[in-house]
Simulated scan of single mutants.
Amino acid sequence: MIKISEDAVGKIKEILAEQNNENLFLRVAVNQGGCSGFTYGMGFDEEERTGDKDFVIDGLRVVVDEDSAKYLYGVEIDYKESMVGGGFTIENPNAIATCGCGSSFRTATDEGKAEKCD
């Protein structure tokens, strides 16, 4: 379903270790909003919900809610270091359009609920 690069898994595990909570896992989601209609959500959670899809990538537990799964199929998450810091990137083969900032998208079959960007 989702691919997470070795660099991204390493960084996520590093951040997760700082939380001192063995019950946490990575939750990846898609929410309505952003300039193009959908935005990505990625954070730590410890509550599973009905319909969640649960899998492990290189020892990292990842959970995706049922509604987000159809937008995240084939997504690749990476982490890049640069001179001004680092950050996660998301490459989504389902996206046909993305916002200039790169944090929102829409698909061929669903436009989501876009917000007006400044």
Rank of each mutant, 00 (worst) to 15 (best):
I77Y: 10
S82Q: 06
N92K: 09
M83H: 08
F88D: 07
F88P: 08
V84N: 12
T107S: 02
F105N: 04
G85A: 09
T107G: 01
E91G: 03
T107K: 03
S104Q: 05
C101E: 10
A97M: 08
A108Q: 14
A95F: 06
A95V: 07
V84L: 15
G85P: 07
N92W: 07
G87L: 02
S82P: 00
M83R: 13
E91F: 10
E81I: 07
A97N: 13
T89A: 09
F105T: 04
G85C: 09
M83I: 12
I90Y: 13
N92F: 05
G102I: 03
T109P: 02
E91N: 15
E91Y: 10
I96G: 02
T98Y: 01
G87F: 02
F105D: 04
P93H: 11
A97I: 02
C101P: 00
I96Q: 05
I77M: 12
S103Q: 10
G86R: 08
A97P: 01
I77D: 03
K80H: 13
M83W: 12
V84D: 13
E81Q: 14
G100S: 11
T107I: 08
F88T: 09
I77T: 04
T107A: 02
P93Y: 10
G102C: 06
I90A: 15
T98Q: 12
K80Q: 14
Y79C: 06
G86Q: 06
G102L: 04
M83Y: 11
I90R: 04
A95H: 06
I77W: 03
G86M: 09
E81R: 12
I96H: 01
D78F: 01
E91A: 14
S82K: 07
I90P: 00
I90V: 15
